[in-house]
Design a protein around this nucleic acid. Structure first.
Lengths: 166, 166
DNA sequence: TATTGTTATACTCTATAACTATA
DNA sequence: TATAGTTATAGAGTATAACAATA
């Protein structure tokens, strides 16, 4: 016979916040499942990766280019990684580094015409994966989910703000 | 250099299906922000990683242990990785491999008493991070979000089912 | 002195494929 | 033949820290 578990008490204490924990696990599962499909599609159909796609997506939104520092901030990764991804994309002729007037330390990175055409093609396919991922939701559900996640996001940003100020 | 704080990943959305794209980017942003905090906490306070924590969490829910194959399925990663993580945890005395009656190929992996105690400590802290992450939501919001994500998850699983059958 | 960006490095996480030992 | 698990390997993705050039 199994000895009584010493952890029954803790298990009960945990169940007090079981709602939050279950929500977190479900949120994580959803984003992992969708992300896996997107990564696989980018790899199989376009021989690229999500960080590369994300960097190009940022540049597509900013035709005049973005500085390395700005890319680092927007993609939430440290600078060395941006250098590496940018180097790859430059070698493939998809983006280019341009000088910045008045600051010879910095670059503007922007899409080349080839990079822009390439991105448009990927973005169309990407969109279809995402539409497929959410086709189980009504327009009203989509809106509710967006609004609720907006609250979550806002709260995370406030938490990070507090930490940055410490 | 610390990881850059926030972001504007959501800038990526553009087309006629902008609703779905924006929802996806927001979902991804939320899970990334929370996940980064959890990973950082596990590393700083317990010198461990999220996959290790997740494996132990599975075992805590299954006191009789789980087979390597089951862990692989539940954690959504391939078998070789389970071997690696399990090896680490065995070396640290946190889990153990037990034989399975009637199948000498397989193992049951389960928490040791030390592993269980260690997990409880981590889980309490983990819970506080998750509660903090969602403290901006009312109980009603929590419930709505959980229900909506349930629809998303269900749809992903059906999509994967279709792919597995191809 | 501070900031922008690069370089070098190391570590975690992951998938793939070949392998073994059982079934 | 098929399955459970291991091993070996390669590559993605990331952070850290030291560094150069410029502000």
């Amino acid at each position: 016979m199994t000895p009584p578990s010493p952890l029954d008490l803790e298990a009960r204490a945990h169940s007090e916040h079981a709602h939050e924990l279950r929500l977190w696990l479900r949120l994580l599962t959803c984003s992992q499942l969708i992300e896996k499909r997107v990564r696989a599609g980018l790899r199989e159909q376009f021989d690229t990766t999500l960080p590369r796609f994300d960097l190009m997506a940022q540049l597509e939104r900013h035709p005049d280019g973005l500085k390395m520092k700005e890319l680092s901030h927007r993609l939430m990764v440290t600078g060395g990684n941006i250098t590496g991804i940018t180097d790859q994309l430059v070698n493939e002729g998809l983006v280019e580094r341009m000088g910045v007037d008045g600051d010879r330390r910095a670059f503007r990175v922007r899409l080349t015409p080839h990079g822009r055409a390439s991105f448009v093609e990927m973005a169309q396919q990407h969109e279809s994966w995402i539409v497929e991922a959410f086709e189980g939701l009504s327009p009203r559900d989509l809106d509710s989910l967006h609004r609720l996640l907006g609250k979550v996001k806002q709260h995370q940003l406030e938490l990070n703000q507090r930490i940055d100020e410490e």
